[in-house]
């Protein structure tokens, strides 16, 4: 009896010994900051300083009302913070690139899912952009998007010359086009990356017997895809889409920063960028935390929604 007790105590001692480094880090850099962040969103700094003691004022839900509320003006009902809604829209716009990217990755995975000579070379090539430092890739795309001398506009003008149109090229980094430019650059960067490998793994896991059975039934290629491949890879699709949506809400910062510092006319400012600006440029710590918490709630809600309703579409063998 006594022996087992000391043994247990011994085990507990070692357990805490193993846990302590991580636990301290977890508490200091994750847990307390989460709590502090929530508290901060109810607080306003009277003087912008970080030194102790803090000169702060409790302002209740003011930040949240500013963020999400509306008020009446002569022109009608206006949002308290119209910029926020604009940036939310920007973020949503950029997330439209997700399905395109997923479709691209899937198609590429299907093409690359063969045992053919030189296939490894192609896989490596397609994977390379996602291996590169993303900032470097963004800088490269700034140059590609250059209006006068960029390779993309040169290509467009070349096509125009070929068919005797007068194509001027596109101002890729203008307010009008920058979001699409970001989507294209992201598409290129992540096309053959992570998601493609996941799809490739999923495709390779489909039992050959299913296709053989479909062959015997005389199925066409399209039929085989929709009746065999698509249901069999649906768990992967589901996983990727959930992860992409979570990432999408937080994304776009780096490309927006390198392309035009969130501009022009804040056309490429995303939610994450707005948080960054509030916090880093304007020192509105409380408001930044408030937006971050709103973003968290939004992500949480969308993810729950996905699990509840998207999960039903998934076929688990």
């Amino acid at each position: 009896m006594k022996l087992s007790l000391t043994k247990k105590r011994n085990e507990m001692f070692y357990a805490y010994l193993f846990l302590v480094p991580n636990l301290i880090g977890f508490l200091v850099f994750t847990f307390f900051p989460v709590v502090a962040s929530l508290l901060l969103s109810f607080i306003k700094y009277r003087v912008i300083t970080l030194s102790w003691p803090l000169d702060i004022e409790f302002i209740g839900l003011t930040h949240f009302i500013k963020l999400l509320g509306f008020h009446r003006e002569t022109a009608g009902i206006v949002a308290n913070d119209p910029l926020f809604w604009k940036f939310l829209w920007n973020t949503a716009y950029l997330m439209c690139g997700i399905p395109a990217g997923m479709a691209g990755s899937l198609m590429l995975a299907i093409v690359l899912n063969r045992k053919q000579k030189g296939i490894v070379f192609f896989r490596t090539l397609f994977f390379l952009p996602s291996m590169c430092l993303t900032v470097a890739v963004a800088l490269l795309w700034v140059w590609i998007y250059n209006f006068d001398y960029g390779i993309l506009n040169t290509f467009i003008r070349g096509i125009g010359d070929l068919f005797n149109f007068n194509l001027e090229g596109v101002h890729w980094l203008s307010a009008e086009w920058i979001k699409l430019s970001m989507i294209i650059a992201c598409f290129w960067t992540f096309l053959g990356g992570h998601n493609m490998i996941l799809y490739l793994a999923a495709l390779q896991n489909i039992p050959k017997a299913l296709y053989e059975a479909a062959d015997i039934d005389g199925a066409t290629k399209a039929q085989k895809f929709w009746a065999v491949t698509w249901p069999m890879i649906s768990p992967t699709t589901f996983f990727i889409s959930i992860m992409s949506i979570i990432g999408g809400f937080q994304g776009g910062f780096m490309f927006a920063y390198i392309f035009a510092r969130g501009g022009p006319h804040q056309a490429s400012t995303t939610l994450m960028y707005y948080i960054f600006n509030n916090f880093f440029e304007w020192n509105n710590f409380g408001y930044a935390c408030c937006i971050a918490w709103f973003m968290f709630v939004l992500i949480f809600a969308v993810t729950i929604f996905n699990w509840r309703f998207g999960g039903k579409l998934v076929h688990y063998s």
Binding site: F29, P33, V34, S37, F279, A288, C289, A292, F296, F300
Partner: peptide, 16 residues
């Protein structure tokens, strides 16, 4: 905490 986006803890950790 794995669900929580980095943006949430950004400000407090910076203050720290």
């Amino acid at each position: 905490t794995m669900m929580i986006p980095q943006a949430v803890i950004l400000v407090p950790v910076f203050i720290l």
